[in-house]
Computed example of a mutant assay.
Amino acid sequence: MKELVIFDLDGTLLNTIADLGIATNYALKKMGFPEHPLSAYPAMVGNGVKKLLCRALPSGFDNDDTVAELRTYFKEYYDEHSADHSVPYPGIPQLLENLRDKGVKIAVASNKYQEAVEKLIGHFFPNLEWAAVEGQKEDVPVKPDPSIVFDILSKSPTPKATVLYVGDSGVDMETARRACVESVGVTWGFRPMTELKEYHADHIVNTADDIFELVNREY
């Protein structure tokens, strides 16, 4: 049985794409750049806000100064509206409660900036105890660098053989591989199943219940 489950946030625990897209469009409009349909944003997210903004900008405009200014406008909007349209995916609240009741530790590893991660987790899952809630921090490399997983394991020491890492993208599967922990790709997120297969997910699941079954599996 697994002792710790580490979850990605966007596209795994929460469907946040509308709020991310609206905040990005707000920032683009503020600076006079063209906006994107919300349907375009699933392909842009996954590597942190800086990379999202780089991808949203027209070609040739993704320099450091422009991205930094765009990020200021993004945060201005997103800090106030991050939960306007975001919702947990079906079965996720019950899964987290079931893991808690079974004594399995849970943690979050996200490329979203730390303040926003803490706010969303506190808003949507206020009654759960987390072993760690880790977002993007200054001077810490973003996923797929495994540092975020190592930070979680330093706060909640757990044998790697008893850890599951759950995410919706190739970035997540690569993070788990580099951290030498078992990976679970979910099909309800922002990326297609083909990407999960391409990045060699150890397991691919279609429902939250499937994750609970993997946690309980005897190895």
Rank of each mutant, 00 (worst) to 15 (best):
E3H: 07
E3Y: 11
L4S: 01
D8Y: 08
D8I: 07
T12H: 01
T12P: 06
T12D: 06
L13G: 08
L14G: 05
T16N: 10
L20Y: 02
L20A: 00
I22Q: 08
T24Y: 02
Y26R: 07
L28H: 06
E35H: 02
P37I: 00
P42T: 08
A43E: 14
N47I: 06
N47E: 15
K50Y: 03
C54H: 09
A56L: 00
S59R: 15
D65L: 14
D65P: 03
R71H: 11
F74W: 05
K75G: 10
E76M: 06
E76L: 12
Y78K: 04
H85G: 09
V87Q: 13
P93E: 12
N98C: 13
G103H: 12
V104L: 07
V104W: 02
K105R: 13
K105M: 14
A107Q: 06
V108L: 11
S110H: 08
A116G: 13
V117Q: 06
V117R: 00
E118K: 12
L120C: 04
G122S: 07
A132C: 12
G135C: 11
E138D: 15
P144F: 07
P144C: 13
S147V: 13
S154D: 08
S156A: 15
P159W: 10
P159Q: 14
V166K: 10
V166G: 09
S169E: 04
A176D: 00
A179V: 01
C180S: 15
E182D: 07
V184K: 01
G189Y: 02
P192N: 06
P192A: 04
M193T: 15
T194W: 04
T194D: 10
H200C: 12
H203V: 10
A208K: 00
D210I: 00
I211E: 02
Y219I: 12
